[in-house]
Write a protein that binds this DNA or RNA. Structure first.
Lengths: 253, 253
DNA sequence: CCTCATCTGTCCTAAACCGAAAATTTCCGA
DNA sequence: TCGGAAATTTTCGGTTTAGGACAGATGAGG
């Protein structure tokens, strides 16, 4: 019985009991404490377990942490983009804020705007705007997605159809150089498209890293948007296209 | 058993009960008060908990103060009521949880139930259930009421109509001795009534202080409910009426 | 048979943890 | 406002645990 055999068993015990102790494992496998420590160190390195004094526990909230980290990614860029976007949203208007960390940043910047009617399908945004003393916040219904607090599904789409917005603020997973907006999640694409059809103007908030990525589902083309907010000049050909389409490109520094 | 093992458990207890006391935790884990204090200090440092004299509570964050205080009112009674109610909710069932501090307590007690489908129009409940690893949480749409995180209005009612629940758990502002359930808020009454018509069983959770109060709007009669959960025997005449109506009255101690 | 790589046990020092007691702060009723 | 009780912070010492270093054991491959 060696490392390779013990580690899956250790994981099984951990998942069953929620925790493991160095001492019990040593007794269970008939090896020394030091050997178990080495196993646990490897499992912790691989993020299978979380090491604590005297043993190990299951890693805490693996799902949410991913979103948390995504939120911190490019944080200063996102904030600058959000500020620029917020400046283009007049007080008193009706706005939709979609799922996403970028739109969440916009929500924070909108806290000072007066008399907005904000509709969102993002629980995090709703929580942020709950602090806002004036205006109205409306939450679309939907299935709560634990990973990112998004509300998705037919209920969400049906609710959105009942409104007409001045401005829709959406994010995306990736942008193609031909101006197409892409997303990883088909379910979300349906929501984004519905939002755009229900809005007079569409704003995209996306940091420049989205240009270096790709995703399978197509939301729409920049052609149908009024403005794009980002933090680096868009590739040359696309800039010309946007001009042709009458889509403003606002680049923050 | 050391620090690393206790802290996740402490968090779990805190999330379930809304608060923890140094003394209870010390007894629970069989360690001294000082040790628990060190744990709580660390959890507070990591913003997982908020330290208070004698124990710790969940970080306040969004909810407003008045609601926060209402939540603390009769807290132990509410918790006992919620526990009893949760015991009557089978695993795997579909449940609606209405606005209110009592229903919020029920949500905490339901965290351990498996494979529930919970629908709610209460943002606080949605936030609580977002931690739940299994089952589904669905949020009705609606206008976000800052005072208590409730989602109200026609959007909410329309969404509810799309479901059929095994059990509806509702609260109320006051109870009349003739068995009528009353509420201060007309808007909320409409939601409660819709919920009840869409459910096979109706549960009321209400602490005994509601008997000494009155309110203008009528939700329904206890006659239409399956069970009432409270913390003191109901007035004599009403007890007989409930028996006649086949409405169980569960009194927690 | 030899060699190399890997795993394991033992030893040792530094760090973490826990409980106890003293000093200080906070809370709450008079 | 004040005083006592409860809770907290601080400090200290004893005990457990962590993790690096090194040597022996084991097994595969040449």
């Amino acid at each position: 019985m060696s490392q390779g055999f013990r580690q899956p068993d250790i994981l099984k015990i951990a998942r069953q009991d929620g925790k493991v102790t160095v001492e019990n494992l040593a007794a269970h496998f008939g090896v020394t404490l030091q050997t178990i420590r080495r196993d646990l160190a490897e499992l912790a390195e691989a993020n299978k377990l979380e090491r604590v004094h005297g043993g190990a526990i299951l890693p805490s909230g693996t799902t949410n942490i991913e979103y948390q980290e995504r939120r911190n990614l490019n944080q200063t860029a996102k904030q600058a983009i959000a500020r620029a976007c917020a400046r283009h949203i007049p007080e008193g208007s009706s706005v939709f804020l979609n799922i996403g960390t970028s739109t969440e940043a916009v929500a924070r910047q909108l806290l000072r705007h007066r008399d907005l009617m904000v509709v969102t399908n993002n629980m995090n945004i709703a929580n942020i705007l709950a602090e806002k003393p004036d205006g109205q916040t409306i939450v679309t219904g939907g299935k709560l997605r634990r990973a990112d607090g998004g509300l998705v599904g037919t209920v969400a789409i049906d609710t959105i159809r009942q409104f007409k917005f001045d401005i829709a603020v959406i994010g995306c997973s990736a942008m193609d150089t031909d101006g197409d907006l892409l997303d990883f999640d088909i379910e979300e694409v349906g929501v984004s498209q519905t939002i755009l059809t229900q809005s007079r103007q569409g704003f995209l908030v996306a940091d420049a890293s989205k240009f270096n990525r790709t995703a399978p589902a197509r939301i729409a083309s920049m052609k149908s948007l009024s403005a794009v907010f980002t933090d680096a000049p868009v590739p040359g050909g696309l800039a010309r296209l946007c001009q042709e389409w009458n889509t403003d490109v606002i680049v923050t520094t």
